[in-house]
Write a protein that binds this DNA or RNA. Structure first.
Lengths: 333, 333
DNA sequence: CTGTTAGCGCTTTCAC
DNA sequence: GTGAAAGCGCTAACAG
């Protein structure tokens, strides 16, 4: 017969049970130094009153909230959604809660969001691919413990990232082996961490294959920018295009299809990330599979490790896999 | 020259400024009853020390956390992702934080998650389409203030929902006007709130059009169950199928296409929700557009209203719009 | 084993 | 206008 009204406090329980606060506290925390019979009685009163310790009060005195913060640049992006999902489930497994902040692509807000959410939690998981290096460097000490996702920094802070460079290289090699010699790259956001990695892959490839024409084209990171890039891509006379990510690839695919271009016969297209929908376009998208949910889970593991002080969490780098589907093929022209 | 080490407390500031705690508190809270000059000095010390009031301590004494909880059944589902996004951004606008819990489709966990996250926050936004009515009824009083998403209850708790019944009816009418007389329905999760609404729409249509054959088929709520239902759908000899949602529709579309079935010539398919990818299938999906992000934003508004006690938040019901794309057409058989 | 006493860091009467 | 003191609900020495 629990009365759900006006949440009972530890004092109520103590009074009803005729014991001191400490005893109740001990019982509730499973401290064995309490007489079993007494403990039983206290527990009885507690359940009768529907008592649960206030997380707030505990947090204040214990100095930990059992909560971590995560800031992402866009909750609408499937990749970050997957990171969040992996993170959230992993954290839940360890009894932690997740406070979430979406900067909505406002890089200027990220710092504040990070600091603010961090103060209400025990640690931070930061996805801020576009925050300038120097700003990030200033921020990091302030929000420790923190783990970075998809972005390296100094070794002092653990970073869980996919190896964008190697993966993109895999995609280029795939196109090359198909026979493509004129390849466009839709560059996404210029100053993002993963774009930097991709550009490195590009120049690596250039060095190895000077005979191949690599054309860099500007673009955004979503459907619309992919679609908007269609004319530029077609104008470039490339036979294949590396899109910044699956979203861009899908937008492009859709737009060129509308213009009567056949994929992959007239144009091969690769995506990046392997979001859940990549296999359902037509043709299905060749892409690099970034295990975003794993990234989230690993980020949690790293943070949890430093939280429990077991070990200095190590950075980890995941290798995406090139998954070849129908959107790439040999050039016909 | 802010020293970021060991977060300064209000006591530090008071000491450095040579004033009492109360004064610092007043200054930090913009209480005008402080001598402007003194206030200025205190503010100086505060910034110098990099002082910010501990949200935890404030929460404890003020009795509010500036945080709300949201529980969703699956963070991998685009609809709930959109709800979360709309909610998170709206809440951020009002200076609130969002604590998120993903029950990972474990209906048994939802109650606990709801109660636990609610205790650390000021209110709850609950998406629990599959929780049994009686369990929900028991839970609600315990987590108030709460607002329900996509699920009505008694009038006592505000509910923000899309009108699934009317929308599905719109989809059926669309198929009917196209000439379909044998229509299959992929029923998704049997006991979910929105499925109940859909079934109501179905029987409404049956009453109006006894000449139409309406075939109910079991299915899940994701790609795979859509694909898995392909044989059953084909076996039913329906000329059109109403999929439980876009995911199911896409899975089905993909599977029947693989079998050489042409959509919409051989089979018309409708989805539900209008997730961002629905327009990028081929053919693009005819579906009912559920403004999930708006649902989230409205849920926030309702919760915020009851939090600030301005008014008793009202329930709202949004009308999805039927959006006709390429996956539906007249039957050819 | 159990109770008493300090706080955790802050806000808020209540006096001066 | 400013400070002293009480207390938000809990835990953790510290005594018995």
């Amino acid at each position: 017969m629990a009365r759900a009204t006006a949440k009972a406090t530890i004092t109520d329980v103590a009074k009803h049970a005729g014991v001191s606060l400490s005893t109740v506290s001990r019982v509730m925390n499973g401290n064995p130094s309490v007489d079993p019979a007494l403990a039983e009685r206290v527990r009885g009163v507690a359940t009768e009153l529907g008592y649960t310790a206030s997380p707030l009060a505990r947090s204040l005195v214990l100095g930990r909230t059992q909560t971590v913060a995560v800031v992402v640049p866009d909750l609408g992006n499937p990749t970050f959604q997957a990171v969040l999902r992996g993170l959230s489930r992993a954290a839940a497994t360890d009894g932690y809660h997740v406070l979430i902040a979406d900067s909505a692509e406002q890089v200027a807000e990220e710092r504040l969001l990070a600091v603010e959410t961090r103060r209400r939690t025990d640690g931070l998981i930061l996805c801020a691919p576009r925050m300038p290096d120097d700003e990030l460097a200033m921020l990091l000490p302030e929000v420790r413990p923190v783990v970075l996702v998809n972005r390296g920094m100094d070794a002092a802070v653990p970073s869980i990232a996919a190896d964008y460079a190697t993966a993109l290289r895999g995609l280029i090699d795939h196109l090359y082996s198909l026979g493509h010699r004129r390849i466009a790259y839709l560059a996404g956001v210029a100053r993002s961490a993963s774009n930097t990695a991709r550009l490195a892959a590009l120049s690596g490839f250039r060095a190895a294959h000077p005979e191949v024409e690599l054309i860099e084209l500007a673009s955004g990171v979503d459907f619309d920018s992919g679609a908007a890039a269609a004319d530029a891509v077609l104008g470039s006379r490339a036979t294949a295009v590396l899109a910044f990510n699956d979203l861009v690839a899908m937008g492009l695919l859709s737009a060129v299809s509308d213009r009567g271009i056949r994929v992959p016969d007239d144009l091969s297209i690769t995506g990046f990330d392997d979001i859940p929908f990549a296999r359902y376009t037509s043709p299905p998208l060749t892409t690099a599979s970034v295990p975003a949910a794993d990234l989230g889970a690993l980020a949690w593991q790293a943070l949890h490790a430093t939280l429990t002080g077991e070990e200095a969490a190590a950075s980890v780098r995941l290798e995406p896999e090139v998954v070849v589907r129908g959107s790439t093929g040999p050039p016909t022209s």
